[in-house]
Structures are given as C-alpha cells and as structure tokens.
Design a protein around this nucleic acid. Structure first.
Lengths: 92, 92
DNA sequence: ACAATACTTAGCCTACAGGCTAAATATGTC
DNA sequence: GACATATTTAGCCTGTAGGCTAAGTATTGT
C-alpha cells in the first residue's frame, strides 16, 4: 500500500477524521483514553481506528508509563495537499 | 451522507483518484468510454466508480447523443482543501 | 427495420472494514 | 503479591464495497 492510498483510506472514515480534528483542536497531543472518551464506540473500535491512522503515518505515539500518548503528524497531511495541487496546476 | 463524507470516501479508492487525475490531465473532459479505456477493469466497474465520484459532486456529465461526456468539478475538491485548513490554523 | 455503438442497470459473489465482547498485557499502587 | 488502571489483541459477525457477467436502453448508421 503506497502512501497516498494509506492516507486517503485512513481519512475516509468519519470517526478517523474526527480523531484527527479532535487531536488537532486539543493541541496535537492526547492519550488513547482521552481519544476513546470522545466516542460512543467501544474502546477497541477506537484503538483500531487509531492504528489505521498511525500506520498511515498521520499519528505517532510515545509510551508514558501505562499510558499511550498520541501525537498528530501534520506534515503527513501535506500529502493530501500535494495531491490536490495537480488540479490547480495547468495540465501542460 | 454529508458532503465531506461523500468526497473523502469517493477519493479513498485508487481507481477513483486515478479517474480524477486522468480527467484533469486530459483537460477536465472525457467520455465514459475514454475513461473506461484507461482501466483494465470491466466497463461496468468503472461506471460505478464514476457514479460514486459524480454523486460526491466531483464530476458531472452531459449527454451528447449516445455518449456521455464527463466533466471534472474542481470547485468540489476545495472541500478537501478546506478541511485541511483546520490543521494550519492555530487551534484557539 | 436491423445492426452496431456507447453506456448503464441488474444481480451475483467475495473479501474485508468496522462494530462488538472477552481476554491478554503492562504498568502503577497498597 | 494482589489489585486497579490503561490500553491492546484476539476473534466473532454483519454489511457493504467493488469485482464480474449478462441483459437492458438509447442513439446512430445502413
């Protein structure tokens, strides 16, 4: 799976976009539990969404004792912006 | 299904992104057959991809005799750009 | 009228995304 | 060591996306 594929499919699900937005709004850093609390979903469901985002490179984490602190990777979102650029360029 | 949902899921599939890029590269206008020719997929498969893009508002078409001419809707892509903007703004 | 062309619609089939619960893992606390 | 806390892993189940073939619908050409 290439990078575009990973990023676009990761952002295809509303829960995952919401994780990204929430994380962004909270300054880019949240624990797994804080993220899970935002959703009505069962925690394992959210864990999986987070994993999809992380394997797409949109998130990364650091272990803090028994907590897992997730960070947003804003740079990775630029892949999307780059893709969109094709439609602004003159196609010749 | 809201607009973001439609656009993001439409762009999640590689074939659909490729339709968008091809159409863009060809100047924004192609017939259904020309689009279908680009892919190894059976034509009906491509038809469905096109429909997904169209119902997301990323494409629209005009009937020209027995041909269907598809046009790219670049404005609609700005929804994605708008979404990305949240991550550039200072979150306060 | 008949056949060919340009597509879509209908409908089948399979894989897998995404929900859940229960169990496992790791760390911190008493 | 035992218990609570934080989180993931395992594994089940269901719906649906996305592939295909066959059949249908217009329009164009002879």
């Amino acid at each position: 799976m290439d990078a575009y594929e990973a990023v676009f499919t990761a952002l295809a699900h509303p829960a995952r976009r919401r994780i990204m937005l929430t994380l962004n709004f909270e300054g880019g850093t949240m624990t797994a539990g804080e993220i899970a609390d935002v959703f009505e979903h069962a925690w394992p469901t959210t864990t999986r969404h987070i994993q999809v985002l992380e394997s797409a490179g949109l998130l990364y984490h650091e272990q803090r004792g028994r907590m897992r602190v997730y960070h947003i990777n804003r740079r990775r979102l630029e892949l999307v912006r780059d893709w969109l650029e094709w439609f602004s360029k003159d196609p010749h």
